[in-house]
């Protein structure tokens, strides 16, 4: 398969970016999107040019490093996948493909397609944990957890922190990311104890870092590679409201 790529190039955070056009030919339909970028980079190196920088690591859809906005969609035209699990068979031969970094003010571009998502780590540091030290905890089976609650907690915990939700949202809101963590812990007796402090701190940090608010468009859920439901945002709102009132 042959493709024309329009790729965002930007030397660093301060520089002005631009689209560059490149062609790749003879690509196997079984090739992943990132492997196709590897082939492009090989071409660039052969011409003594700088390869395109992009974040990637596990290449099996779990580390959350890849952060490509492909043809106007986070992680591209397939559903419930990250860009590393997107295969070229999802495109048509001869397609022109536009590749951009995440577009969101709280995720500034570092270089080319690489963005700075350290805001997520800062939100986690503000309260995305249960305050237990190593050791001195009760036996794991001391507190039974209803299976349905544990399953809902796991649904939320599946978040890979890629930031597609923020990139998809017109408000660059991190509500789905924050909700996934708040909801996971709110569903578990171990996490319930601190719910109030946690939700207030995480939301305050999210606001401070310039992420927007939620206006219920549902774009985050539609583009989330782990299909995390916006019902977790409802739970976040509920926890936030009760924390504010009580």
């Amino acid at each position: 398969m042959d493709f024309t790529l329009k790729i965002w190039r930007q030397q660093n955070a301060a520089a002005k970016g631009r689209f560059e056009t490149h062609k790749v030919a003879g690509i196997s339909p079984d090739c992943s999107f990132l492997e196709m970028l590897d082939i492009l980079n090989q071409q660039l190196i052969d011409k003594f040019e700088k390869p395109v920088c992009f974040d990637h690591d596990c290449r099996e859809g779990i580390c959350g490093a890849c952060s490509l906005y492909i043809n106007g969609r986070p992680h591209g035209p397939d559903s419930a996948v990250t860009a590393c699990q997107l295969h070229m068979r999802k495109f048509k031969d001869g397609d022109t493909i536009v590749v951009e970094p995440w577009r969101a003010r709280p995720f500034p571009v570092i270089k080319d397609l690489v963005v700075d998502r350290s805001g997520f780590d800062k939100i986690m540091a503000a309260g995305g944990y249960i305050s237990v030290n190593t050791g001195g905890v009760p036996d794991a089976n001391t507190i039974p957890v209803p299976r349905a609650h544990a399953e809902t907690a796991m649904d939320a915990a599946a978040c890979i922190g890629c930031g597609a939700c923020v990139a998809a949202c017109k408000n660059a809101s991190a509500m789905l990311f924050v909700a996934a963590k708040v909801s996971q812990f709110a569903m578990l007796p171990q996490g319930k104890v601190e719910t109030r402090e946690r939700v207030l701190k995480m939301v305050a940090k999210m606001d401070e870092l310039g992420f927007g608010n939620c206006t219920n468009t549902g774009a985050c859920e539609a583009e989330c590679p782990k299909q995390i439901s916006i019902s977790h945002i409802a739970r976040l709102n509920r926890e936030y409201l009760s924390a504010k009132i009580l």
Binding site: T134, P138, A140, P144, P146, A150, A157, Q184, L188, Q190
Partner: peptide, 15 residues
């Protein structure tokens, strides 16, 4: 330790 941290391990119907 992991359960205390909120790791959502699989559970049976008795919790």
């Amino acid at each position: 330790q992991c359960v205390a941290q909120g790791v959502p391990f699989a559970r049976d119907y008795g919790g």
